[in-house]
Amino acid sequence: MRVLKSLLIVLALVLVALLGAEIPGGSILFGIVIPYVALFVFVIGFVGKVLGWAKSPVPFRIPTTCGQANSLPWIKQNKLDCPSTTAGVIGRMLLEVFTFRSLFRNTKAEIVDGPKLAYGSSKYLWLFSLMFHYAFLVILLRHLRLFTNPMPAFLAALEFGDGLLQVGAPVLYQSDIVFILALSFLFLRRVIMPQVRYISLVNDYFPLFLILGIGITGILMRYFIRVDVVNIKQLTVGLATFSPVIIGQIGSIFFVHIFLVSVLLAYFPYSKLMHAGGIFLSPTRNLANNSRMVRHINPWNDPNIKPHSYAGYEDEFREFMVDAGLPVEKELEPQPEAEQAPAES
């Protein structure tokens, strides 16, 4: 049901773009106005979200400790999985951002004959999400060819490498295949594994279908239903130089593609996709585990409330504690009553 709902939403979006681009002025709306609005929403939403997170104080160290913490000199510390220095944190973050190390630690739980509960390593999620993200990055960078004029030089090498197999004309990009393959896996994983299906919501399936829709329309445009690239580049470069024009035939599939991308951009900051920014602001990853070396003081402590040590507390209440029969660290000084009276006066 949740799968179907997400699919229907994406299909409805496709239909909106298909029909909308046909009405007079529709090409301007879907080709120029909506992309600008979407980009604006994306940037403002992204920055706003990050600033919102930055406003939340993180007074104490809450890193996930995935290895041996810094301890006695003869106990070997796991410097990447339980870093106690900034350098260690940077190393941990770099590996997390570029190689998804926390997904690498993904495990599966199974009931085997016995019945016994068994945990095993499960690397598929890590592998396919790595494939998906890097293919997406390559595809994104490749698209700069349509938004820059002339294209930056480094992209020529990327394009050549991506089409290295020289299959067909226009050449087949390996990243397209990897992208669809990985996305299909990530979708099937949610549908086939009962535990994952149970916790999957519309906002899990919707981005999957949306991105799949973008991929499929892009692939259709490149290999099957050809569109006029020169006319499209005049529009896209126009978008980047704030002088967009729609000249000649473009093909309605292009409007579907760009509309789905616009929806993705506008949806991005308000969805789980925001993990792109959130990963950098995750206190469980970006804090050093140095609670035993540095005293972290809560910034919203009331300065009028002075620290009250246990020794001071006992000094204040020792008599009452002794009276109540509570154990004290320092006993009351045994003084004869006769001597006590003049001392107090």
Binding site: L39, F42, V43, F46, V47, V50, L51, L144, F147, T148, N149, P152, V237, A240, T241, F242, G277, F280
Partner: peptide, 17 residues
């Protein structure tokens, strides 16, 4: 970090300029 983000997103705009 946010300045870098905006710089990357607006890459086509300033690169063309």
């Amino acid at each position: 970090g946010l300045v870098v983000f905006i710089g990357l997103v607006t890459f086509p705009i300033w690169f063309n300029v």
